[in-house]
Design a protein around this nucleic acid. Structure first.
Lengths: 371, 371
DNA sequence: CTTTGTTTGTTTATTAAATCAACAATGAAA
DNA sequence: TTTCATTGTTGATTTAATAAACAAACAAAG
């Protein structure tokens, strides 16, 4: 080890990248001002990034009011690489391919036959590989979201009941099987990473992202299994807790209160407003203290919550939490899984020094270029 | 600004100090190993600390098993300075003077007549000054804990109902009135800082510290006002939330469920076990989801909870949270206020770079020595 | 008792990286 | 056209970390 001489540079580099990421088009001087670093320092940090085409020149800025040289606006080269995000369920998946500014290049979804978590992901990746490679943007990583408790840092699946998977060392099992790094995380956490990515310019740092997921889709049988997942974001990072189980609600709380929210009508399964109100009243009785204790900047409601926005707003009316209901769709988890990979790539390595926390390194990604 | 050249050194210095603090007696080489820094780097960092007598030689260690020079064990010089911690209530206070290893040098408590927060603290400090100065250990700072919502970083009291104090800039009001820095924080958070200090060698990093406080002490009238305060500690630091209100419970939740827990018997006010069970059952119904969502390493119960340990244990039996009931006494908050000051002094300044978070600096403390 | 090997800790030289200062390029406004 | 402000680069300087060599201290083997 003991290469702490380069540590300061790496920290500054990641700060520079963070700024480039959240400001599409920022000059070197503006970066130096925001980071309180010397102009020449930024020049020295940015130029290698330009040479490696991780950063590109976006445009010439307008000249300052009082005159002077026009700034050269820089930004992340979104076509440096793409990330595959996968939302893996027991019998279905959805996947998205995003570039480095978070734009979706392609999306997929479908059913699958589960045959072990590593094998299933591998098969899925193989089936998509040709299409992925047809883009001019080379893939640099894969993020996977699964329902279950996952230690993302260690690449360890602690509990994934629906996959019948317990205490499984995914990282070791996947070793060498993929040409790019693969990170795995809980699905609710992935959604939270996705929101962090979407709100990166708003500097939303502390929030709760609550999703209401149906485990059985509307079909012949009623969608009985309701899952409430909370993604906890503190100081701009998803918080995992001491046992990677942060955001989990007690099982008895979830199961006992669901009632028969869904009723069958001519046009399929619909929400019964009366049962819904009973359920939500009961649920938020428990959620409100959580909101208070976390004191979040914002509470984001996703998944099925968008279908009962008014009811939620009514319940939280007297509380003065800032709440929002973003547009949702069924690739949110997959998008979030890709965002998770990206956030970890751009994450500043400040704290990883003495802890055993292992962050993704650009060197892992650049290795491909050096071959 | 722009003295980021020294930043690395400051970070390393604070890491060294942290290690010295949690290991009473550690050699330079061991520090270098734990921080993955070169041996000579530690020598260069430690020697100025020794010269300033912030660090002292504790003892000669035993020689290594395979032979070799005996290590020189170093530790924080606990007599470098003392910190006054104050638990301020509307009509009473308690205070402790602690040295830098957290030992209590002196303690006080009594009633007081409130006359504005700054003035009250100032009067209290003046009345204790002679006794404080009688110790050979010079005072280097004051920490104050109050019931209310406080932005400690900014030194701003957002809401302290019992003091009738709202949106009050304590830092500016106290400017120049004290010979040492004064930091102010919420009382429940202070208790959490105190637990962090007490458990520093166990490396307890993520926990909830829940205290049950009585606002009116047992006396003529029943102690009706029960206050539950939660201190949230994440990654070795008290978490304040987006509005400094983290750890607060909704007011309606607290007030509606108290019942008549205290009943009058011949020997004063006592707890009614039946009413207690009803109250605790109701309370923990709301706390359990909070515990789940935080996924803490440990949950510490303080204050009046020690009087109903069995009841709490029974309620949490089926959950597998690690819980503990440390010895409590009525100077815990004052001790915690002092710990808060100390933790902030030793806190590693890693994150304070680009944020507006202002950490206490050793230079603030050393200023006294330079005069 | 001497030798050998190990470990702590310091000293000196080297190296990485940030700052500082000087300067070129550019453009607004007088 | 001149002046001044601003961006960005280049080269000298400074800070602080590492590397390497060495001194001191000590256990264990011969």
């Amino acid at each position: 080890m003991a290469d702490s001489k380069q540590f300061q540079r790496i920290v500054n580099l990641s700060h520079v990248l963070q700024l480039l990421r959240i400001n599409e088009g920022i000059s070197r001087i503006e970066i130096s001002r925001q980071l309180s670093l010397d102009r020449s320092t930024i020049t020295n940090l940015v130029n290698p990034l330009l040479e490696n085409s991780i950063v590109k020149v976006v445009s010439e800025g307008i000249a300052p009011a009082k005159g002077g040289r026009r700034p050269v606006l820089l930004g992340i080269n979104e076509n440096f690489g793409s990330i595959l995000g996968i939302d893996l369920q027991i019998s279905s998946y959805s996947a998205v391919l995003v570039n480095l500014n978070g734009s979706i290049l392609q999306e997929w979804s479908g059913n699958l036959v589960y045959s072990g978590i590593v094998e299933t992901i591998e098969r899925l990746y193989e089936s998509l590989k040709d299409e992925i490679d047809s883009f001019s943007v080379p893939i640099i990583g894969i993020g996977v979201g699964i329902p279950g408790i996952v230690d993302t840092e260690k690449g360890f699946i602690l509990k994934a009941t629906s996959f019948d998977c317990h205490n499984f060392n995914f990282e070791i099992a996947a070793e060498g099987l993929f040409s790019v790094p693969v990170l795995i995380d809980n699905d609710a956490n992935c959604c939270a990473w996705g929101q962090l990515e979407k709100n990166k310019d708003k500097r939303l740092q502390d929030f709760l992202n609550i999703i209401w997921k149906l485990h059985r889709q509307e079909g012949e049988s009623a969608p009985v299994e309701i899952e409430i997942g909370i993604g906890v974001v503190l100081k701009g990072e998803v918080y995992y807790g001491s046992g990677s189980a942060a955001g989990e609600l007690p099982e008895d709380l979830l199961s006992r209160e669901q009632g028969n929210i869904y009723i069958k009508t001519e046009d399929g399964w619909n929400i019964d407003p009366v049962a819904l109100k009973v359920y939500l009243d009961s649920l938020f009785q428990y959620l409100k203290p959580i909101f208070s204790v976390f004191d979040p900047q914002e509470i984001i409601f996703g998944g099925q919550f968008t279908h009962c926005r008014e009811a939620v707003e009514a319940i939280l009316e007297e509380c003065d939490f800032s709440i929002s209901f973003p547009e949702v769709n069924n690739r949110d988890t997959a998008y979030g899984a890709a965002s998770m990979f990206m956030e970890k790539l751009f994450q500043s390595p400040e704290l990883q020094k003495d802890s055993d926390k292992k962050t993704l390194q650009w060197s892992d990604v650049l290795r491909r270029y050096n071959d």
